[in-house]
């Protein structure tokens, strides 16, 4: 007996959702240890001795037990809905990512389009939180967020389209299967275009995820905590979860688009593990950048996007298209 498709999808979604949450929890631990070592520290150690293996769980428990404070003057509906509106698109992007051939919730034929469209939706939750908190810091942060997302989603999309052009498909599993072979990953191909595209993708990702050096909307030295300054307890945890889920999602996408997804030596069942390792590699790159640079100012961020990154990504996309056309559809 087979389950109806809806039930199948529900079960798959349930598994993926929980896996994502678990991964996010441990990715935060990874980042904390990584940053700590970079800063001559040790990082979480005692909870789950040694090396803090239980720290994420302890953090989650602590946040659940925290008092939930709603500012008196907040727009209650907007304020309470914002964390969910923020979290849903961040988790939803995992729906379309295939972790191995056939292993995923839905391998859409427009997978990457879905991914890009949904991941841009997080701005709604962000803006709701900033507006609904009725806090000046949050409001300024929300305004900055809108600016930044608009500026950086364009280069993000353009660079993500480079592999699409090279692979000739929008289906993510197709993009992976176009990268088979020795040095078949897109990062090695198209005469160096791939590397440039990966770099541009990383920069755009960092900006679209509001990480240092582009974290002007969190900007705790200016805006305290930005749009989430009024959130506490579980709502704060949801926002945090969403943020890291988004980062992880784009790391997976980056590994999939440029680093060949689940392709790797060894038997087929190693595929998801390769994929995970590559995603973590991308994540660590982002983290490394994050803990190395100082934040830049809002106008400079916009300048970098519009003056450097957007032209560069358009040029890259055009060059990729030209390369494909010039070779007449053969592998480039």
């Amino acid at each position: 007996m087979t389950l109806p498709p809806l039930a199948q999808a529900a079960i798959a979604a349930f598994i993926v959702l929980n896996a994502v949450i678990l991964m996010v929890a441990y990715v935060t631990l990874l980042e904390r240890k990584f940053a700590a070592r970079m800063q001559s520290r040790i990082g979480p150690y005692y909870v789950g001795w040694p090396h803090g293996w239980l720290q994420p769980i302890a953090d989650a428990l602590k946040l659940m037990l925290k008092e939930d404070v709603v500012p008196a003057a907040a727009d209650r509906w907007v304020y309470n809905l914002a964390p969910i509106a923020f979290l849903v698109p961040c988790v939803l992007i995992f729906a379309t990512i295939p972790f191995a051939p056939g292993l995923g919730v839905a391998d859409l034929n427009i997978g990457i389009l879905f991914f890009l469209a949904v991941s841009a939706l997080e701005i709604v939750g962000l803006f709701m939180g900033g507006w609904g908190s009725n806090n000046k810091y949050a409001l300024i942060s929300a305004m900055r967020a809108v600016n930044q997302i608009i500026s950086y989603d364009l280069p993000f999309i353009f660079t993500a389209l480079v592999p699409v052009v090279l692979a000739g498909s929008m289906q993510l599993s197709e993009i992976v299967s176009a990268q088979t072979g020795l040095f078949g990953w897109f990062v090695f191909r198209a005469w160096g275009l791939g590397v440039l595209a990966l770099l541009a993708y990383l920069v755009a990702t960092i900006a679209a995820e509001n990480r240092v050096p582009f974290d002007i909307l969190e900007a705790e030295s200016e805006l305290v905590a930005g749009f989430r300054v009024e959130y506490s307890g579980m709502k704060f945890a949801l926002i945090q979860l969403g943020e890291y889920a988004h980062i992880l999602g784009t790391s997976f996408l980056g590994a999939l688009l440029f680093l060949g997804g689940w392709l790797g030596p060894g038997p087929a069942w190693l595929g998801p593990i390769w994929f995970l390792l590559k995603a973590i590699f991308v994540f660590l790159l982002i983290t490394w950048v994050r803990w190395s640079f100082v934040r830049i100012r809002v106008d400079q961020i916009l300048a970098i996007s519009w003056k450097l990154l957007l032209p560069l990504s358009i040029v890259l996309l055009m060059a990729a298209a030209f390369a494909v056309a010039w070779s007449g559809g053969a592998r480039v």
């Binding site: 070592r37 001559s40 520290r41």
Partner: peptide, 21 residues
């Protein structure tokens, strides 16, 4: 970018944490 990340990388791999437990 290279120099900055080089410094952090150097600290990551070459230096022991200074934390006293």
């Amino acid at each position: 970018v290279g120099r900055t990340m080089g410094v952090t990388f150097k600290n990551l791999v070459a230096r022991k944490p200074v934390t006293v437990m």
